[in-house]
Amino acid sequence: MLEKICELAQIAGSAIMNCYLSKKSVNIFYKSDNTPITNADYEANNLIKKGLLSIFPKIPVLSEEGSHNFKDHKNWDTYWLVDPLDGTKEFLKKNGEFTVNISLIKKGIPVLGVIYAPFFKILYSSFNNEAWKENKKKGYKKKIFVTQSKKPLLVTSRSHPDKELDNFLNQTNNSYKIKKLGSSLKFCYIAEGKAQIYPRFGNTFIWDTAAGHAIITAAGGKIKTWNGGELNYSLSSSYNRSCLINPGFLASS
């Protein structure tokens, strides 16, 4: 299963890169919340959804770029959760920090995660409590694990300013090094031991975090809400899932 999902993420990544490198202008649209979406988002979404339903026809798909009718999916116990192009703003800025995110959710828990960064040709994946990083350029694949550091690297969003985060940083000591980074690569940095902490106060959606959540936990890290609870991806009404927004959280090694 994991190998098939990795292949599908790379297919979507190739389509995204065709748009990224094209001399033609990218078609940009805006959602109701004024966030951008492009033809690359739509194309990647169509490829992933078609591929998932072809390989696993009995498992439904919830994607950022699909319909989000709570009544339709509230009884899904197992489903695919997809962000076909995480980091659209980074895609438009041409800094390469965008990813394809695919995760499998079972009973509210992300049990499989795949994150592909097509610009860098780096693939992160996890399943059965093991996590890997594969560099397609250099041709190697290795298991990854979180690490501790005397001077931890703290990663923050490159494109989403957060006043609560500024307050958090002002209240901490100066032992952190700080790096701004786009998309779900922040989770991957922690999973492979490059970074140790990612505090998030502003809104994220469940498709923004699920694949990264799966990879971090498989690599030995953790994600907790600011109340100490678990991020839960259940669509059941018992979890008050009337919207698809996460609470704030702290990802760490």
Rank of each mutant, 00 (worst) to 15 (best):
D77E: 12
N45I: 06
I55V: 13
K50G: 00
P57R: 06
G51Y: 12
S25G: 02
Y42V: 05
W76S: 03
N45F: 02
E64S: 06
D77P: 00
K71R: 13
F70S: 07
D33S: 09
T38F: 08
Y30R: 14
H68F: 06
K24A: 04
I37E: 11
D72K: 14
N27M: 11
A44S: 15
Y42A: 03
F56L: 07
I59N: 10
F70W: 09
A44Q: 10
K50P: 00
S54C: 03
G66H: 01
N27T: 09
V26H: 02
S32K: 13
P36M: 13
N27I: 13
P57E: 09
L47P: 02
F56D: 12
K71H: 10
L53G: 00
S54F: 02
E65Y: 11
G66V: 05
E43C: 04
F29W: 11
N27R: 14
V61C: 01
I48Q: 09
H68S: 13
A44Y: 10
H73N: 15
D72L: 07
S32D: 12
T78Y: 05
I48K: 05
Y30M: 06
L52H: 05
N75E: 15
Y30W: 14
E65R: 06
N46C: 01
N34T: 07
K50L: 01
N34K: 11
H73E: 13
N39H: 12
N46A: 08
N69F: 04
E43Y: 02
I28G: 01
K24V: 03
L47R: 10
I37M: 11
G66N: 13
L53F: 04
L52V: 14
Y42I: 12
P36Y: 07
I28P: 02
K58M: 09
I59W: 03
D77G: 01
N39M: 03
E43F: 02
L62S: 08
K49T: 15
G51P: 09
